[in-house]
Each structure stands twice: as structure tokens, then as C-alpha cells.
């Protein structure tokens, strides 16, 4: 089985442009509507930005929270909300630790990131002008964090 890949955000590089939200909505909704983006930008003043999408949790709290069993796990570890079962109660949104789920203002159902299934990788990652987003495995994330930490130590020693 392939290691699961998620969208990670380098908060030093993320500038808060929100183009990931624009692009996501265009590919999924065929219109521009950032409130329907699967990825969410969060800014904490004065200087912190991050974009967050589904983390593919091993035991997704959103699934546990759903009283109608409307959320299922897909083969790649992502979650899918079955629209005809969802009644928009939003318990899953409350349960998610990352704020990765959203309620569609018009259809009143919840939606989640599908990692642009069948598109050869997430479009937000492809379009991010700052290279802040990466579609990668947790193994790779850990390795890169280690390299970064070690580089910092070397710099300090020098």
C-alpha cells in the first residue's frame, strides 16, 4: 500500500494570497467562489498565515461525529461526504481538529478535500505561486523537518 499523501503548508512561505481557495473553487465548482474552497486559508495577525486541507486522519473524527454515517473513507485515506445522506448539521465540522471541512452555503451540505482525484495531484499545490504547498507523505515531511533543523544547528555553529 502506498504511503498516504497530504497537503502540507510551509507557513514561512505562505503569504496569505488565498489563490489556493480561488483555484480550488474553480476546479470543483466551475465558478469562482472561495467560500466553497476545500482548502482554507487562516491568518493570525500580525504575521502568521497557513492554508489547511484534510489531513487524512487514521481515525477521522468527522466520521465518528456524523450521526447519519454520511462520511466514508476513500482508498487514499481522504474522506467523502455522501451528499444525499448529509443534512448539514455540522457536527463533523466541529469535530475536525483542523477546520478542514466546510458547509456549502447554498446546498447546505458539508464538503471535504478530495485531493483533486484523477487530476494528477491537487490543483492548489500546482497553482500556489509561493511554493508554500506540497503534496507529500508524512515520512517526507518528517525528513524535511529534520534536515531543516539540522541546517539551523550548522548555521548557528558556523
Amino acid at each position: 500500500m502506498e504511503a498516504k499523501k497530504i497537503i502540507v503548508c510551509d507557513t514561512d512561505k505562505c503569504s496569505g494570497c488565498e489563490l489556493c481557495e480561488y483555484v480550488c473553487s474553480i476546479f470543483h465548482e466551475k465558478t469562482v467562489n472561495w467560500s466553497k474552497s476545500r482548502i482554507r486559508h487562516v491568518r493570525i495577525e500580525p504575521t502568521f498565515d497557513i492554508a489547511i486541507a484534510c489531513r487524512k486522519c487514521e481515525e477521522p473524527l468527522c466520521i465518528k461525529a456524523c450521526p447519519r454515517d454520511a462520511i466514508i473513507t476513500m482508498e487514499d485515506g481522504s474522506v467523502k461526504v455522501e451528499k444525499d445522506k448529509c443534512n448539514g448539521c455540522g457536527w463533523c465540522i466541529e469535530a475536525c481538529n483542523f477546520g478542514a471541512l466546510k458547509l456549502d452555503w447554498d446546498k447546505k451540505v458539508v464538503f471535504a478535500c478530495d485531493f483533486c482525484e484523477g487530476e494528477g495531484g491537487p490543483k492548489c499545490v500546482e497553482f500556489c505561486p509561493y511554493d508554500a504547498l506540497e503534496f507529500t507523505t508524512l515520512d517526507q515531511v518528517g525528513r524535511e523537518a529534520g534536515v531543516k533543523a539540522f541546517k539551523r544547528i550548522i548555521e548557528e555553529l558556523e
Partner: peptide, 13 residues
């Protein structure tokens, strides 16, 4: 400078 930030829809920052 602590951070270089962008306005919405800006790829420059």
C-alpha cells in the same frame, strides 16, 4: 521585517 505578506489574489507579496 518579520514577514512579507500578500493581499488576496496577489502572487507577488
Amino acid at each position: 521585517v518579520k514577514k512579507v505578506m500578500a493581499c488576496p489574489s496577489c502572487p507577488i507579496a
